[in-house]
């Protein structure tokens, strides 16, 4: 494995760029179009110890019936669950385009043996998962065992076969700084990730704009080096439309038109969808909305 360890990130520079992105002002048509795009990119997520089949079924229903007053809206991109819920989700979504995504590899810590991780991945794919969200071994990363991290991703990718796309969670909140995030992104991309993803949602900070920008730049460099596109998924902490639109502007200005598509960009979020719906309705009706009219979970 040849790693390009040279690429450095200046923290303040990244944050300056982000601050300029967040100053973009989205109005009228651009805003509505953006909001719809966001909805189509959401991985509706439930990852709790107390998840039940009923809870997952409800979420799947929501994924395909976002709001009855706005029938022209797109569906969300996927529903993301624990491996033991994949069957349930898969059944609930079998007649829809919404993908079933499953976390795997001893989510969220990633601290388990490779055998267990492989087994878990195989099971999830066998049960119908079309997307696997794995976590990298941060402990190994911090001990400098980059080859281990790389090989693990490559093996999981192999076990996804051609049935499932692999999203690799870097858990950026545990990586310490942007240079590490950049390096982890490159390891994941070169090991075969179809997507790189910021966070499990269990660590703070989860996704942030600057972290996402660092990862997008890694994706871009990879594209220009190899011609291959890799997807991006910020997850955790993106709970309102304004922030989600800023992410979208960042994608537009960093990777451009090709990535403005649910096949290449996702939001991992649980409460974002409702806020986007409220904003869309507000754009349509001119009236500010209340949570009471939007179903939770």
């Amino acid at each position: 494995m040849i790693l390009d360890l040279k690429t450095k990130v200046d923290k303040l520079g990244i944050e300056d760029r982000v601050s300029r992105i967040t100053k973009r002002s989205l109005k009228s048509e651009a805003k509505l179009q953006g909001l719809k795009m966001i909805l189509s990119m959401i991985d509706l997520t439930t990852l709790e110890g107390m998840d039940t089949n009923k809870r997952v079924e409800q979420l799947c229903y929501k994924a395909t019936h976002l709001h009855q007053e706005l029938p022209e809206l797109p569906n969300v991109a996927a529903v993301c669950v624990y491996p033991n819920m994949v069957k349930t989700a898969s059944n609930s979504l079998k007649d829809s385009e919404v993908k079933v995504a499953s976390v795997a590899t001893a989510f969220p810590s990633g601290n388990s043996s490779l055998e267990v991780k492989i087994q878990e991945t195989k099971e999830a794919v066998f049960n119908g998962a079309e997307e696997i969200d794995m976590v990298i071994s941060r402990g190994k990363f911090h001990s400098g065992e980059y080859n281990y991290v790389f090989d693990e991703i490559a093996i999981i990718k192999e076990n996804c076969g051609d049935k499932a796309r692999l999203k690799v969670i870097l858990e950026t909140g545990e990586l310490g700084d942007y240079d590490h995030i950049r390096l982890a992104s490159e390891i994941a991309i070169k090991a075969g990730a179809d997507f790189i993803k910021t966070s499990t949602g269990k660590i703070k900070p989860a996704a942030t704009l600057p972290i996402t920008l660092v990862m997008l730049e890694a994706i871009k460099d990879h594209y220009y080096n190899t011609g291959k596109m890799v997807g991006m998924k910020p997850a955790g902490g993106i709970s309102n439309s304004k922030l989600a639109l800023q992410y979208l502007v960042m994608v537009k200005e960093t990777l451009g038109n090709l990535w403005l598509d649910k096949h290449w960009f996702r939001f991992g979020a649980s409460s974002l969808a409702n806020d986007v719906l409220m904003q869309i309705l507000k754009q349509k009706t001119g009236v500010y909305q209340s949570n009471n009219y939007f179903s939770k979970g």
Binding site: P108, E174, D177, P205
Partner: peptide, 10 residues
């Protein structure tokens, strides 16, 4: 550079 510090809620 100012650090960011992480907290977890496992």
């Amino acid at each position: 550079e100012k650090d960011f510090t992480s907290t977890n809620n496992y």
